[in-house]
């Protein structure tokens, strides 16, 4: 399970004069369910398109399953955010199309899954509900039996019940096959409990990449008297510093455990959403394991190059 499924090194994509993604380096181990989060326009879709081999990088490299992106021979499935189905095709046409286009195709799985969801094969996909369309698209992607599944905003336009059903089925496939999933969303609460790896993209940069449990374990929220904040900042990486003249609230990263602090600090763990929001509000902060591995002191805030 230590195999790296997705590896980007110095990856960048420029559209005319604007960098949509820049200096992106990350490595995702096999079997993970990766949450790719960030504001709209942060570079999530660009990163997914680069990983799917649909875009060529302007700078750096991206390798998928050991090959340059786009050369991994049908082992990657990509589900685009907008209109992933042909609206005039019936559901059965979509399955025939999938079988024709893909070297590996599990038709039995696809038919059984659609039958289980009560989705009629003879309906045109354009006439199905949003939730059913998402399920057909996901079925087509899964019937390729990919090793890596890339999903761009799979939950957008789905009602809460359909969201639960999509995630439930996706998790069951992960349990069954060890599939690696990379899915983007700007709604963090959708991803809690389902994802175990977090990638935060902000303004075209990768800000955070790591195991979610490790990240939650390494971050703490301290609140206490403002005059003590300087001493903490000199010892720990402060992601976010929120201060009034009397009180300070600090989100700190302590990769090697929290050292003994002045007892006047109140310490509590952080939730995933708080962690993500803190980083997004502080684009200069970053938590990237590669920098720690490269020998940078883990207690220093890591500025972007």
């Amino acid at each position: 399970m230590t195999e790296t499924v997705l590896e980007a090194t110095g990856l960048g994509k420029r559209y005319r004069r604007r960098w949509a993604l820049r200096d992106c380096s990350l490595a995702v181990p096999a079997g993970r369910v990766v949450a790719l989060v960030g504001p709209n326009g942060a570079g999530k879709t660009t990163l997914l398109h680069l990983a799917a081999g649909l875009l060529a990088p302007t700078a750096g490299t991206v390798r998928v399953l050991g090959s340059p992106a786009g050369h991994e021979r049908g082992r990657v499935a990509f589900l685009a955010q907008d209109k992933p189905l042909y609206e005039t095709f019936t559901v059965a046409d979509m399955l025939r199309f999938g079988r024709r286009m893909n070297p590996v195709w599990d038709d039995g799985f696809a038919r059984a899954r659609l039958a289980g969801l009560d989705i009629p094969l003879d309906h045109r996909t354009g006439r199905l509900s949003g939730g059913q369309q998402a399920q057909v698209a996901l079925t087509v992607a899964l019937a390729k039996r990919p090793d890596l599944l890339l999903l761009d905003e799979p939950m957008a336009n789905l009602d809460p019940l359909a969201r639960h059903e999509v995630m439930r089925d996706l998790m069951a496939v992960v349990a069954d096959t060890g599939l690696t999933v990379l899915l983007s969303s700007h709604v963090v609460s959708d991803l809690e409990n389902t994802c175990d790896w977090l990638v935060v993209v902000n303004r075209g940069r990768v800000q955070v990449s790591g195991d979610i449990e490790d990240l939650l374990g390494a971050h703490h929220l301290l609140s206490g008297p403002a005059e003590l904040a300087g001493a903490v900042a000199s010892r720990l990486a402060v992601v976010e510093d929120d201060r009034t003249d009397r009180q300070a609230t600090l989100l700190v990263r302590a990769t090697d455990g929290l050292p003994a602090l002045d007892p006047r600090w109140h310490v509590r763990p952080v939730a995933l959403e708080e962690l993500v929001l803190s980083y997004l509000r502080q684009p200069e902060s970053a938590a990237l394991p590669r920098l720690v591995m490269a020998g940078a002191a883990p207690t220093d805030p890591v500025p972007f190059p």
Binding site: G31, R168, V174, A175, N193, T194, D196
Partner: peptide, 13 residues
């Protein structure tokens, strides 16, 4: 797989 298919949580959990 049974647990995951009911709760929609990560199988590693």
């Amino acid at each position: 797989k049974d647990v995951v298919a009911k709760l929609a949580i990560n199988p590693n959990t």
